[in-house]
């Protein structure tokens, strides 16, 4: 088990004057699951089901209110360990790249952080090398993010995450902001990375069809709870839970998926 999430709770409070806690929103209540090395785990559910919050907790961007995340059996906290073993791919590729930094600089910085060096010591070959993994070896690395298409931006974001040599990649709705024909390209890229690099991936989406294509195992979430989990074929082919059935019947047909 590369990652174990044990009994994770996340509650958002709206704090009133003088710091008294009032309204509570339970984003996650009692999530338990584990991820095997090399697998792609799909997390599916509608908006507000808590899947993104779970992704952020795994990546160390949010703290859980209760429960813990264990990496290979060890507890991880952002303060103790230097680099998080998980990296995240965000929904909006334009927003995940700093608009004021060139693509080359962003990748150089990530490579440096991954290798524990200063950015000046990273050679351009290494940047090219990491870009070739996402099929972008020919781009001009002196360009700024806005000079690339959405699909290219998302590939650059994936390259940046790979540069940090993560044990786990959390893809939070990586294709829902992209054009439908580009979606398939990015999904295929994610599958390719999983196969060639052996990278463990958590794929978060609201579209159960996309999740089914990518994942080995699927977790269905609703209102902060896991309602069903199991191998992808079983969840989609023979769903037990009513909510899962609803999700499947709501899928639009995408002609680009094979």
């Amino acid at each position: 088990m590369i990652l174990e999430a044990k009994n994770i709770y996340k509650t958002y409070f709206s704090e009133t004057f003088l710091g008294r806690r009032s309204d509570r929103v339970k984003a996650l209540s009692g999530i338990n699951f584990s991820v095997k090395k090399g697998e792609i785990l799909g997390l599916v559910g509608e908006s507000g089901s808590g899947k993104s919050t779970l992704g952020r907790i795994i990546c160390g961007l949010d703290k859980p209110t209760g429960g813990e995340v264990k990496w290979s059996g060890k507890k991880w906290s952002p303060k103790k360990s230097k680099k998080c073993s998980a990296q995240m791919i965000f929904q909006n590729p334009a927003g995940s790249l700093n608009p004021k930094l060139t693509v080359g600089y962003a990748l150089r910085e990530a490579l440096a952080a991954g290798a524990g060096l200063r950015p000046g010591r990273i050679k351009n070959d290494k940047i090219r090398n990491i870009l070739s993994k996402v099929g972008l070896e020919k781009i001009n690395i002196k360009n700024y993010p806005y000079q690339f298409s959405g699909g290219q931006q998302q590939r650059i974001a994936i390259a940046r995450a790979l540069a940090l040599k993560p044990e786990l990649l959390v893809c939070d709705e990586p294709v829902s902001a992209l054009d439908i024909s580009i979606q398939a390209q990015v999904i295929n890229l994610i599958k390719k990375i999983n196969k060639e690099e052996g990278l463990t991936i958590i794929f978060i989406a609201h579209d159960i069809e996309a999740v089914n294509i990518v994942s080995h195992n699927i977790i269905v979430m609703n209102k902060g709870k896991i309602v069903e989990k199991g191998p992808a074929g079983q969840i989609v082919g023979n769903p037990e839970n009513d909510y899962t059935k609803k999700l499947i019947s709501a899928v639009p047909v995408n002609p680009y998926y094979k």
Binding site: C84, A86, G95, P99, L164
Partner: peptide, 22 residues
């Protein structure tokens, strides 16, 4: 709140660098 700052945090690249470069 932008994603690129979250990405920088996950890279663990030091607060000073995040403040002044990002």
């Amino acid at each position: 709140k932008r994603d690129y700052i979250s990405a920088a945090k996950m890279m663990n690249i030091g607060r000073v660098r995040i403040l002044f470069i990002h």
